[in-house]
Nucleic acid binder design. Structure first.
Lengths: 239, 239
DNA sequence: CATGTTTTTTGACTCACATCAAACCCAATT
DNA sequence: AATTGGGTTTGATGTGAGTCAAAAAACATG
């Protein structure tokens, strides 16, 4: 069990999604597990699973460095990336990790997209009311985010989706004090496609097209947004 | 303000999503508002707004009778139905009602799909810890549900989506002790389409096709599932 | 019951995206 | 320098679902 320590929760300027800072309090066995993971560092590559106790995540993690993706796995092998989590954000909401949805087993998993280091924050303990309240915010935001993606998946066409994707990335970087117009993608075209409900070729074509239009400059994983306004516009114009 | 009364929370066998029962505690003005709504009963039709204080829902409602839809509105007029809530379920999570998502104003609204009567449950009061805990479950489930829809929107084709939709409806009715094979749709093809990311014609065609196959029997809003196994199969087969 | 309105169905056509396939780039390995 | 392999780009082609349109059915109204 995690060593109980006084929770130290405060709005955190560097964590955008989080707003939730706790001293890192790892139990002995969790420390050991972390070590194991670090030991096997080389076996960790894109697509590998992160950390599961049993068949569900039991804790919240604040991502220190690197980026992760969350995805849903259908039993028939279909998978969908449901989000990308970057440094300063939260991953692994306990309650939603594994659950039955409409009678079908839906496994929610996290896999490494980029690098791996992370910090265990705190197990989702029922008895820290202020943590709970923050959790509400996080979950609410998760829902709002999901609903946004639903809008995207349900009613946008390919280039609009890619534009929207780039813009949200841009904003997330901006929130973290990084350049909103020049950044590295930390996920493959494949993953972007899965996230946006598109095939990787379509994503690539969208990038190329935006580049031809002079809206962005792409060099594989490096993105520079040249005309942010045009990118914005390309979401609404074509509909 | 709502009259504070002792919360009486317990697992509720008739409420499937809820698991949350409170004595109906309406304040005077809320009672009045409810009366107003009942007065104007005839002015309520599909698509009308339900109940908003300011521009956000301030309370949780347990739906007593009828059905509602939740949707997102984009400023450019685009809308997407994000879910259907039926009797015995919960509607109107405060925190997510109106929020900024990725810098764009996204309004979450509820509109009446079928009939209107509802009961106010309790304002989302921070000071009832057991309510909070239940809220977690509800929100978790909301997230899981959303993620399922994302899977659907992202990687299923039209007939699979419609099949999945019918199956979840079936299960929800079953959970409520109603017939899982014979029920009335309480939403238009349009709404189903919006929910599934399809056009209404496509939904109609899917229904017709399933009917031709002898899997279901459709008569406008009346659905009978004839071969549940085949319906199940049609989700996986075509992929 | 006749009439107007909305919802649903059906058909013909089009187009955006998926699919298939080949070439390319870049980094790691030998 | 040559090889291998994953990720990316690009092109040619096919198809599922959108679009447009019109008829039919369901529903509402006087």
């Amino acid at each position: 069990m995690p060593q109980s320590k006084s929770a130290n929760i405060s709005a955190c300027s560097t964590c955008n999604l989080a707003e939730l800072c706790l001293p890192v309090g790892l139990s002995a066995q969790e420390m050991q597990r972390l070590d194991e993971l670090n030991m096997q560092k080389h076996s960790f590559s894109r697509g590998d699973y992160l950390y599961r106790s049993g068949d569900r995540f039991r804790a919240l993690f604040a991502i220190n460095r690197g980026a992760f993706k969350t995805r849903i796995l259908h039993e028939d092998g279909r998978e969908q990336v449901t989000g990308f989590q970057m440094a300063g954000e939260i991953i692994g909401l306990d309650a939603i990790s594994t659950d039955r949805h409409d009678g079908e087993a839906v496994a929610l998993e996290s896999s490494v997209v980029c690098e791996l280091p992370f910090q265990k924050l705190e197990t989702l303990s029922r008895d820290i009311p202020s943590l709970q309240r923050h959790l509400h915010k996080i979950m609410s935001r998760e829902i709002v985010r999901d609903q946004g993606i639903m809008l995207l998946l349900g009613s946008m066409r390919s280039e609009e989706r890619v534009a929207a994707f780039l813009l949200t990335l841009s904003q997330r970087y901006a929130m973290r004090g990084l350049s909103p117009t020049q950044f590295q993608l930390c996920m493959s075209r494949q993953d972007i496609g899965s996230y946006l409900g598109l095939k990787l070729e379509t994503v690539s074509r969208a990038f190329s097209h935006f580049q031809d239009e002079g809206i962005i400059a792409v060099k594989t994983r490096s993105i520079e947004i040249i005309d942010l306004a045009l990118l914005q516009a390309s979401i609404n114009s074509s509909c």
